[in-house]
Amino acid sequence: MSEYKALTAYQDESVVEEYERRRFSGLVGRYVWRREQRAVGRNVASVGSAETVLDCPSGFGRWLPVIERLDPIVVLENDVSLEMLEHGRSSYNDRWPGVRTNAEHLPYQDASFDLVFCHAFTKHLPHETQVAVLKEFSRVSRRHVICSFTMRAGLGGAVLRLRERLRGSRSNAVTREWLERAAAEAGLRLVRDRPCTSHIGAERSVLFERVLVAA
């Protein structure tokens, strides 16, 4: 199992309590949230329908209102942080079961879900862990995966490269070519990606579809 900061950071009760206020309050936070809603919502709408959905990592369950537009029969909220799952019970998620899991090793059989949904997670992961997680998402999906990635593309990618030079360190961002190769290795096809933060942000919501392999 890989080690990275996000694996343990959100198991701190004080961090969990402050998470929503820090990320979504203020003019900038509300602006980014509205853009995320539009971009991710369009990708979700493109799926059409999904009876079974895995939301991983789910955090508080902020994306449930968007996922529920697909009229699912089952949504499983999964997160490595029990604290996040418990907070979700008192805020966004009063309907769906929550399961404590690690995205690198999901406890589900192959093709268990019509859709695997993931947002704002892979940017925390080293490249090799991004590959491992994408393979797990593909394995348990029958049809689609929606997952955000920080990408070196467009204006957002240019601004990201400038920030990296100023900081003197590289982020976990990926190129589109890298992502297409990783998707192919996982048995997925990249359908489309949409910028989903600010106009100069590098995070993009990516819609993948499962590649059917002939018997």
Rank of each mutant, 00 (worst) to 15 (best):
E68M: 07
G98K: 04
H144W: 15
G154M: 09
L160I: 11
E164K: 08
A132P: 01
G61P: 10
C147H: 05
R38A: 06
V213A: 02
E177T: 10
Q130N: 08
A214S: 10
A202S: 15
Q37P: 00
S169P: 03
Y92R: 08
L179D: 01
Y31R: 06
T8Q: 10
T122L: 14
H127N: 13
F113R: 10
L115W: 12
E13V: 11
E3M: 14
F60I: 03
L54G: 07
V145K: 00
R21I: 02
L207Y: 10
E3P: 02
F117V: 03
V159P: 12
A50H: 12
P195R: 13
S81T: 06
C56R: 03
S91V: 12
L64E: 03
M151A: 04
F60G: 00
H199Y: 03
G156T: 12
E83N: 06
V15P: 02
S138T: 01
V206I: 13
S58K: 02
R139W: 04
E36M: 06
Y92W: 14
G41R: 11
R62V: 06
V40A: 00
D12Y: 06
V80M: 01
I146W: 08
E203D: 12
R152L: 11
C147P: 07
A50E: 08
T101S: 06
R204T: 01
A6E: 11
E3W: 08
R38L: 11
S49D: 07
P126E: 09
V40T: 09
F208R: 06
A6Q: 11
S198Y: 01
Q11A: 00
C147T: 06
L155F: 09
A173P: 13
L82A: 08
A202C: 13
E36V: 00
D94S: 14
S2T: 10
R42G: 00
P107M: 13
L27Q: 04
S141D: 02
R42N: 11
G29A: 00
I73D: 12
V47H: 09
E177L: 12
V28I: 09
E77K: 04
N78V: 02
P107K: 13
E180T: 12
D110T: 15
R167H: 12
Q130F: 07
R38G: 01
V16A: 07
L54R: 14
R165L: 13
F60S: 03
